[in-house]
């Protein structure tokens, strides 16, 4: 975190000045997502408590914790998918490249074009494989060189070899693991900066899971990947940083993955990781 210059990718249309304060000193170009005191409520119920977190660029950050502790909630804060839940309310400050994601001028639709998401259960559209990958490009009006972009996305998602001769076939005819890689390809096709993954392998068999894991590691060369998982070995294998959320929606510890798994600060995290609860 030695560089203090702002990144060029910061959108100029969004008024970031007002939100730039003392935190700016600590956020270098390495940090892409910065959460400060983020709390989320569903109606009266609090799902996240004052989460403070800085997620570095082009690395894999894992979020682990017992179920119901708010992992998915935190992930959905980043691309504002919580907006779709009527009862949800987000407090605190969440910055993407220094811009307050919940600022008045941020359009969630524009935000989601830069922050892609892969869900727990593969959810391809009931369209052809090609149309699935081309979906984002089409709705964003980027239809030039469509074929090339679709092919490249499928290749980056390590799916092209398997489907290259059946691009017009229904995506629903693919296996679960292929469907999930298709969803990743769909997400990659629009070149997002961040990819959020919510337990992307939990519905898959071991072989498909290991393919997805390999894929995630290779994605980290180009993208920032934030992955929720309930599988601790998986987090240990593929991530650079790990955040441990514990029941009640608090962030118990956040550090390099090695530190978290070998020498965690807090006893509760150690108990959780060694399987004493959760």
């Amino acid at each position: 975190m030695s560089e203090h210059e702002r990144t060029q990718t910061q959108p100029s249309t969004v008024d970031a000045e007002s939100t730039v304060g003392e935190d700016e000193q600590s956020t270098g170009a390495r940090t892409v997502i910065e959460a400060r005191d983020v709390s989320v409520y569903y109606g009266q119920e609090q799902a996240l408590q004052d989460v403070d977190l800085e997620i570095p660029r082009r690395q894999v950050t894992a979020i682990i914790g017992p179920s119901g502790c708010g992992k998915s909630t935190f992930l959905r804060c980043i691309n504002r998918m919580n907006d779709l839940v009527d009862a949800a309310r987000v407090d605190g400050r969440l910055r993407f490249d220094g811009t307050d994601v919940y600022g008045p001028e941020v359009d969630p639709v524009a935000l989601r074009r830069r922050v892609g998401m892969v869900f727990q259960h593969p959810n391809p559209f009931p369209k052809s494989i090609y149309d699935n990958v081309a979906y984002g490009l089409r709705i964003h009006g980027r239809t030039d060189e469509l074929d090339e972009r679709v092919e490249r996305a499928l290749q980056r998602a390590a799916l092209f070899e398997e489907v290259s001769d059946q691009l017009e076939k229904s995506a629903l005819a693919l296996s679960g693991g292929q469907q999930q890689r298709l969803c990743i390809a769909r997400c990659l096709a629009v070149d997002p900066e961040i990819i959020l993954m919510d337990e992307p392998a939990s519905a898959l068999d071991p072989v498909a899971t290991s393919k997805i894991e390999d894929l995630i590691e290779s994605l980290a060369e180009e993208y920032t990947v934030i992955i929720v998982t309930h599988n601790m070995q998986q987090a240990a294998r593929i991530s650079d940083q790990t955040a441990v959320f514990l029941t009640g929606g608090e962030l118990a510890e956040y550090d390099d993955t090695d530190t978290i798994f070998e020498d965690p600060d807090s006893q509760r995290v150690e108990d959780y990781i060694t399987g004493k609860f959760g």
């Binding site: 779709l84 639709v109 935000l111 989601r112 074009r113 830069r114 959810n123 559209f125 769909r186 629009v190």
Partner: peptide
């Protein structure tokens, strides 16, 4: 899940 997928793609 289909709506989520579309919104998640920035639709």
């Amino acid at each position: 899940s289909l709506r989520q997928a579309a919104y998640g793609m920035g639709a």
